[in-house]
Amino acid sequence: MTEATLGAPGRAKLRRLNFHVLGPLLALIVLIILGAMLNPNFLSYGNVTNVLARSAFIGIIAVGMTFVITAGGIDLSVGSMAAFVAGVMILFMNSLIPYLGIGIPLIMAGMGVAIITGFAAGWMNGFLISKVNIEAFIVTLGSMGIYRSLVTWLADGGTLSLDFELRSLYRPVYYDGFLGVSWPIIVFAIVAILGELVMRHTAFGRHCAAIGANEQVARYSAVKVDRARMATYMLLGMLVGVATIMYVPRLGSASGSTGVLWELEAIAAVIIGGTVLKGGYGRVWGTVVGVLILSLIDNILNLASIVSPYLNGAIQGVIVILAVVLQRENKSAD
C-alpha cells in the first residue's frame, strides 16, 4: 500500500550521501582548511597532538554513548561518573601506597579500580533502566546528581590529589606516547575502531539498532532486549573508566568540577556524527568526526583572534542544531 514511496529510496540515498554521510566529514575538512589558513601553527605536530589528546576523553566516552543512543537510550551521568571514578581511583591509589609501594603494580591496580567502578556505575544505570523500567533520562539525571555529589563529598568540597611522587610516575600515560603518538590518541583510536567494528559487524551492534528502531520488533525477533540494553550502559560505564585512566595523569587530581558538561559534549558529538537521537541508527566513525569537529572549533577560536573564544559554546551549539536539522531533512525524504 505504499507505492507512494517506491521512488524514494534512490533519492533518499542520494540525499543521505550528501548530508548524512558526507556532511560531518565535509565540515571537518572545511574546519581543517580554515584552521590552516588562519594560523600556520595549526597543523604543527604540537597542536595536532594537543587537540587529539584532549579530544580523547570525550571521544572515548562518546563511542560508548553512540551505542546507548543507538539503542534508544541516553546517559546524562557520564560527566559526573568520570569525576566520581577519578575520585575513587585517586583515593584508592593513595591509600594503597603503603602496601604496594609507588610503582607499576599500583598504577595497574588503579586502572583496574577505575574500570571496575565505571562498569559498576554503568551497570547500576542499566539495571534501573531495563529491569526496573524507569526512563533513561530520569535514571541518569538522578545518577548524574548522585555521582557529582559523591565526588564533592569524597573531596570534602575541595580537590582530591594524587600523591606527588605517584603522579610523576603516572604522568607519561597522558604526556608520552608510542612512536610519537601520545597514549590517549592511541587508546581513542583503538576504542573507536573496535566500536565501529562492533556496531557494524556484530550481532550486538545490529541488536542495538533494532531495539532503538522498534523495541517490539526486536522482542518478537528473539532479541534479548533487556540484556542488550543493559550491555550498552555497562559498555559506556567501562569506557568512562578508560577515559578516566587517561584523564587522571593529566592533572593528577579530581574535584566537584571535574568532567562538568562532558555528557553534553559527548551527546553533541554523537548527534553531529549522524546517529539518530531517537535511536535505531548509529555510526561510530561519525561520532569520532563529531568529537573532532567540536574540539577543532575550540582550538581554532583559541589560535585565531577573529572571534572571541568565549563564543566557543555558542558556535558549538549552532553546529549541534544544524546537524539535527540536516538529519530531519533526510527524514522528510522517506
Binding site: 545490529r206 528502531a213 522498534n214 520488533v217 518478537y220
Partner: peptide, 23 residues
Amino acid sequence: EKGLLLGKSLRENLTLLALDRFT
C-alpha cells in the same frame, strides 16, 4: 509494529530472528 523494522533494509530485517546463524 511487531514484525518488521520499517526503516531498515530488507537484509537486516530478514536475518534479525536468526542472526546467530550468520555470526
